[in-house]
């Protein structure tokens, strides 16, 4: 009887059993954990893991835009190493990253300490400091392009008109200065992030600690060395690692200012990878160039993750 009336639909007892199983699943902390994490894992698999594994596959092949190519193992990396342009690019990338991050670190921390002090219009200044970070990369780069222009540099105009120099600097013409110029623009863009992040860390330090150290006779430098620095260090390190990763893979500033010139003096891995992989259609080699960054970034990411885990456990 029941079978005729319930054809195609579960009877009450079946529904109860299913509801109960679902309830058990949700009630189990372990299962619920997996359930809640599943969407994130899925997104990571689709948006990160899949493209990443595809990129590795490309780097190990001689694929071009029109040809799927064949597996060539590490040949792309070996051949790349023979290219003077690649070796120069690798060197540029490390100088670019180290130089830019050093400037970000010094100016960012300095700026954060200043912004942590009380002064008039502090909020407005804090907001204004963020401008280089907020402005779209292309727009900022265009402004710097005008300032560094080989024939119309406004910076040179000021230097010459004020009598400080006779001709001004060859900002983008001299190979060494050109690399410094592009890393300067990268640092200009990154300083606000460093400053605001460190500032957030500074504001989380209880003022009692400063009062206590002052009572103990600590001067300004000692307060910075023994109170501020240790307490702001976790935030500082996080900002530092993120800055290194972003600078290492920067594309827009170099491409906008020099396209890697003059004479490849400012090429970084991202711009060379674009030139090789997309502009020239040599996908395999382009992927190999971009994956050069992987070991360095991987070490940094693993170190950062372990540090975060340790601090979370603690």
């Amino acid at each position: 009887m029941g079978s005729s009336t319930t054809a195609g639909a579960p009877d009450r007892s079946t529904r109860t059993v299913r509801r109960s199983r679902l309830s058990d699943l949700v009630d189990s902390e372990r299962s619920l954990g997996y359930l809640l994490v599943a969407p994130v894992v899925l997104l990571l698999l689709v948006l990160v893991a899949y493209p990443f594994s595809v990129a590795i596959g490309y780097a190990l092949s001689d694929r071009t835009l029109a040809d799927p190519g064949v597996f060539v193992g590490l040949e792309n990396f070996v051949l790349l190493w023979e290219s003077s342009i690649y070796r120069q690019t690798l060197r540029n990338t490390f100088i670019f990253t180290a130089g830019s991050v050093a400037i970000r670190l010094v100016l960012g921390v300095g700026l954060a300490l200043l912004l942590n002090e009380s002064f008039r219009f502090r909020r407005a200044v804090r907001a204004a400091i963020l401008l280089p970070w907020i402005v779209p990369t292309v727009l900022g780069t265009m402004a710097w392009l005008w300032m560094f222009n080989p024939n119309f540099s406004v910076l040179n105009y000021i230097l010459v008109q004020s009598g400080l120099m006779e001709h001004g600097f060859n900002w983008l013409t001299d190979p060494d200065l050109a690399l410094f110029s592009v890393l300067l623009v990268n640092a200009w863009r990154g300083v606000p992030f460093m400053a605001i992040t460190v500032l957030a860390g500074l504001q989380a330090i209880p003022h009692d600690l400063y009062d206590a150290s002052a009572i103990d006779g600590a001067g300004k430098f000692q307060r910075f060395r023994y109170v501020t620095l240790p307490l702001v260090m976790p935030v500082l390190l996080t900002a530092l690692v993120l800055s290194i990763i972003w600078t290492f893979s920067d594309f827009g500033i170099v491409y906008g200012l020099t396209k890697g010139g003059p004479m490849n003096a400012t090429h970084v891995l991202a711009t060379l990878s674009y030139q090789t992989g997309l502009a020239s259609g040599n996908i395999g080699e382009g992927a190999a160039i971009s994956l050069t960054m992987l070991p360095v970034l991987l070490v940094l990411i693993i170190w950062q993750l372990r540090r975060i885990r340790r601090s979370t456990v603690a």
């Binding site: 080989p150 024939n151 396209k259 010139g261 003059p262 004479m263």
Partner: peptide, 11 residues
């Protein structure tokens, strides 16, 4: 004129 090694298309 100085600077031609840094010239991009608009320069």
């Amino acid at each position: 004129i100085p600077g031609t090694t840094a010239w991009l298309d608009p320069d």
